[in-house]
């Protein structure tokens, strides 16, 4: 499902003296079935942007087109269910939204809310818990008896259980240990390869380099760059303005350039960096 923003402006408290622009004339296409990263500093408007995709926020002007659905300032709050079933959203620290007395019920809540039968929802819970790397035996436990990392996975399973076509993730790995982070990121990449559209908000530029096909950079409510990560991270202008930080491998390569090494384009993953260093040392 392709998602298009056409001249979207979002003003918080539009008619008051404290009005502030959350988004300023953003036009952007998020391609179907790709992994797109949205980056920008805290307060830049990333979260405001993605909240328009399932109409948690509506544009003050302009429109958002999600598949066949058009969202404008006039969009009625009724009949948003089909849209929200298609677009699943995992908020930051999603474990804080668990509320049922068992893990199973918590995962079943989403599908049942969207009209699945109890049996279908239960089946989804059993599939999803395994998908996020947890044991089925946890289904009968209270979500509050789980560790933080396990709770995070249950919350993600709950969103995936409704089988959304598009999954939006807002800093899904914040606070997880490195191995847990890797598992969760690989899960999302896997979902994308199986046909879902993934939209990831993140501060971690290494994750952008390692997983994303496309990236969009938001700064002060404006879209200032979009494209494949390798292109965007080589955009000198963005780097000079300090708007964007580099992935670890790219900043290492940049320092190597001070003496002897030369990169036509800065490598952005550790494998690219290692390969280029070997080539340059072999003199070919």
């Amino acid at each position: 499902m392709e998602i298009t923003f056409e001249h979207v402006t979002h003003s918080y408290e539009a008619n008051s003296p404290t009005a502030s622009l959350g988004l300023d004339d953003v036009s952007l296409t998020i391609k179907d079935k790709l992994f797109t990263a949205i980056v920008g500093q805290t307060g830049s408007g990333k979260s405001t942007l993605v909240r328009h995709i399932n109409a948690l926020l509506k544009p003050t002007s302009g429109k958002v087109i999600v598949g066949k659905r058009v969202i404008t300032s006039e969009t009625n709050n009724k009949n948003l269910k089909p849209l929200r079933k298609q677009v699943g959203m995992v908020f930051q620290f999603p474990e804080s939204q668990l509320f049922e007395d068992t893990v199973e019920k918590d995962i079943m809540f989403g599908p049942m809310n969207f009209g699945a039968t109890e049996e279908e929802a239960r089946k989804a819970a059993h599939t999803m818990i395994k998908l996020v790397g947890l044991d089925e035996s946890l289904l009968s436990k209270s979500p509050f008896d789980l560790s933080g990392g396990q709770m995070r996975r249950v919350a993600i399973a709950g969103v995936l259980a409704s089988d959304p076509e598009t999954v939006i993730l807002d800093e899904p790995t914040a606070g997880l240990d490195p191995v847990g982070r890797l598992e969760i990121m690989n899960l999302f990449k896997d979902l994308q390869e199986k046909g879902k559209t993934i939209i990831l908000i993140t501060h971690n530029m290494d994750d952008v380099a390692d997983y994303a096909d496309e990236m969009a950079v938001i700064h002060s409510g404006k879209l200032i760059a979009q494209g494949p990560p390798k292109e965007v991270f080589n955009n000198q202008e963005l780097l000079q303005d300090d708007v964007l930080t580099l992935p670890h491998s790219a900043s290492f390569a940049k320092e190597l350039q001070q003496k002897g090494f030369h990169f036509d384009k800065l490598p952005i993953t550790i494998n690219e960096l290692g390969t280029e260093i070997k080539q340059q040392l072999n003199g070919d």
Binding site: F252, N271, G274, I277, L281
Partner: peptide
């Protein structure tokens, strides 16, 4: 990074 480079260097 070293374990990648060590293969040939």
């Amino acid at each position: 990074l070293m374990s990648i480079i060590r293969v040939t260097e």
